[in-house]
C-alpha cells in the first residue's frame, strides 16, 4: 500500500532581503508521525515551520519559491492563509496566552469559526484541555486569567488552544525551551498520544528530546536539509559527516 505524504515539500527556497534562509529543501512527511527537526541556531528551522502555515506572509522582504503540498494541494495556490492555518496549527517557543480567561483562550479559535453554543464550547474546553494534560490542574480555574497559570501550564494551554481549532498538522517550535523537566515530560507525553490523530513536526534544540519522541528526524544546517531518516538511524549511524559532527557536539 502506498502511503501518501501528508506534507510534501519540493525545492523550497525562502529568502529574506535576498538572503536565503532555506535552500532548496525537499522532503515528504507521512501522516501520523512525529518528525523531529534539529539543527544549530540560524539553520532555518523556524522559517521552515512558519512557511508551512504561511505565518510569514506579511513579511514584505520575504520570497518563496518551490512548492509545499498539503494532502497534494499547494498551500499557496489552493489554500488561503486562513483555511490553511485552521488545518496547520503552530505552538511557539514562548507561550503567549491571550489576556483573557483560560476558558476563552481555548475557545478563541472555535469562536472565530462562528461556534456560539455554550454546551459545545464547554465540551471543547474539557476535551482539549484533557488532550493537553492540563484539565486536572485547571478545571477549577477556567474563569481565571490565563496569565495566572505557570509557564508550563501556559504552554499546555497553548497546545489545547491550538488543538481546539481542529487542525490536522501540528507544528511545534521548541515548545519546551523555557520549561522545567517535569513540564517537558508532560508535553512529551501529550505529543506521543497526539500523533495518533495529527501529523506533528517538532523543532527542538534538545537532541535527546528529538531522539525520545521523533519517529523520524531531520537535520538542518545553514538553511539546507542535510539528512532525514528514521530517528534510530540518524542517532546511531548517520549518513552525512555533518550530522555526525553535530550530534557528537563537534560544532553548533
Amino acid at each position: 500500500m502506498v502511503i501518501h505524504p501528508k506534507i510534501r515539500v519540493k525545492n523550497l527556497t525562502v529568502s529574506f532581503d535576498g538572503k536565503a534562509s532555506l535552500k532548496n529543501v525537499s522532503l515528504d512527511i507521512e501522516p501520523h508521525i512525529i518528525l523531529s527537526v534539529i539543527g544549530p541556531a540560524n539553520s532555518g528551522k523556524t522559517t521552515f515551520l512558519r512557511t508551512l502555515n504561511r505565518l510569514n506572509d506579511d513579511e514584505r522582504a520575504m520570497k518563496v519559491s518551490g512548492e509545499v503540498l498539503l494532502d497534494g494541494k499547494d498551500i499557496y495556490k489552493d489554500h488561503d492563509p486562513v483555511s490553511l492555518r485552521r488545518k496547520v496549527g503552530i505552538i511557539f517557543a514562548l507561550p503567549v496566552p491571550l489576556p483573557m480567561t483560560v476558558f476563552e483562550n481555548v475557545v478563541y479559535g472555535p469562536r472565530r469559526q462562528g461556534i456560539r453554543d455554550k454546551k459545545i464550547l464547554g465540551a471543547t474546553v474539557e476535551r482539549f484541555l484533557r488532550d493537553a494534560y492540563l484539565w486536572d490542574e485547571v478545571k477549577d480555574r477556567l474563569d481565571e486569567p490565563a496569565m495566572t497559570l505557570s509557564g508550563g501550564q501556559q504552554q499546555r494551554l497553548c497546545i489545547a488552544r491550538t488543538l481546539a481549532v481542529n487542525p490536522e498538522v501540528l507544528l511545534f517550535d521548541e515548545p519546551c525551551s523555557a520549561l522545567d523537566p517535569i513540564s517537558t515530560a508532560k508535553i512529551e507525553e501529550a505529543l506521543s498520544k497526539l500523533k495518533r490523530h495529527y501529523t506533528i513536526i517538532l523543532v527542538t534544540n534538545n537532541t535527546k528530546q528529538a531522539a525520545r519522541v521523533g519517529d523520524k528526524t531531520a537535520f538542518f544546517l545553514m538553511g539546507e536539509l542535510v539528512e532525514l531518516n528514521e530517528t534510530g538511524k540518524i542517532f546511531t549511524s548517520p549518513e552525512d559527516r555533518r550530522t555526525d559532527d553535530y550530534l557528537s557536539g563537534r560544532f553548533g
Binding site: 502555515n53 505565518l55 514562548l94 503567549v96 478563541y108 479559535g109 472565530r112 469559526q113
Partner: peptide
C-alpha cells in the same frame, strides 16, 4: 499591543479583521 497577540490570533485561524477586533482592539 504586543505583536505576539496578533500572531497567535492569526495562527489560530482568525482572519485579519477578527484579529483586530478580538485580539488587538480590546487591549
Amino acid at each position: 499591543v504586543p505583536g505576539s497577540f496578533r500572531e497567535v490570533s492569526l495562527s489560530l485561524g482568525a482572519t485579519k479583521l477578527q484579529t483586530i477586533k478580538y485580539a488587538v482592539l480590546p487591549h
